[in-house]
Simulated assay, not measured.
Amino acid sequence: MKNDLNTSQMLAAFEAIMKDGEKTETGRRLEGIEASTDYDGYNVYLRGNGVELHIGFHNTYNLTYDHEHLKDKFMAKIEALTKPQINDGHH
């Protein structure tokens, strides 16, 4: 059975990580999720918790993981990264 991911949410998480994350060798990392892209920007990668998500052209994607609970933790982090942040004046 295919998992139907919300690629818009995944790309929003990618943008958040690229904006606010720490620079790594291949991209940027935030909250334990690393975001990177290939040289032309057509392929986007999100990695963390033993999970790798590759989003390609036309929002095609491939999600790989060894254990369901790892995918669940990864998805929870993605969700946290894409929730609207409440600006409380502390930054």
Results as ranks from 00 to 15, higher is better:
Q85W: 05
G89D: 10
A80I: 03
L5G: 07
G41D: 00
V51A: 07
A35M: 08
V51G: 01
A12R: 15
A16Q: 15
D4L: 11
T7M: 08
K73L: 13
G21V: 04
L70K: 14
L5T: 04
Q9P: 03
H69E: 14
A76F: 03
A35E: 07
Y65A: 05
D20N: 15
E52M: 12
K71S: 03
Y42E: 14
H54G: 07
N43E: 13
M18P: 00
G27V: 09
M18Q: 14
D38S: 07
F57G: 06
A13C: 01
Y45H: 11
K23F: 02
Y39R: 10
V44T: 07
H67T: 03
L5N: 05
D72S: 13
K2C: 03
E79T: 15
H69D: 12
H58C: 06
Q85H: 11
P84Y: 05
T24L: 10
S8C: 01
K23C: 00
P84H: 09
N87C: 06
H90A: 13
F14Q: 02
A12H: 11
S36L: 04
L30N: 04
G27L: 06
N3L: 12
H54Y: 12
G89Y: 08
L70I: 00
N62E: 14
T60L: 07
Y39S: 15
I17E: 02
Y39D: 14
E31M: 12
L81Q: 02
K23M: 05
G89A: 11
D88I: 13
L63Y: 06
A35N: 02
D88Q: 09
I86V: 13
Y65T: 01
G27W: 09
E79P: 00
R47T: 11
D72F: 02
G21M: 01
Y39I: 12
Y42K: 10
S36Q: 09
L46D: 03
N62T: 11
N59H: 11
N59L: 03
I17G: 07
K23N: 02
M18E: 15
I86T: 10
L46A: 03
R28H: 14
A13E: 01
H54W: 12
N49V: 04
Y65W: 12
N6A: 08
I86F: 10
R28E: 11
G48P: 01
L70A: 10
Y42V: 12
H90M: 13
H91W: 09
L11S: 10
K2S: 13
V51H: 05
E34N: 10
N49Y: 15
E79H: 11
N87D: 15
G56P: 03
D66P: 00
Y42H: 09
E22D: 13
H90Q: 14
G27Y: 07
K2M: 12
K83M: 14
H54R: 10
H58N: 14
L5D: 06
S8P: 06
Y45C: 08
Q9V: 06
G27K: 09
G48F: 06
N3A: 05
N43P: 00
T26V: 06
G48R: 00
H67F: 13
L53V: 05
D38A: 10
A12I: 04
V51L: 04
Y65F: 15
R47S: 12
Y65V: 04
G89T: 08
Y39M: 12
E31K: 13
F74E: 01
E31W: 04
G56A: 08
N6Y: 07
G56I: 04
N6K: 10
D88L: 13
D20I: 00
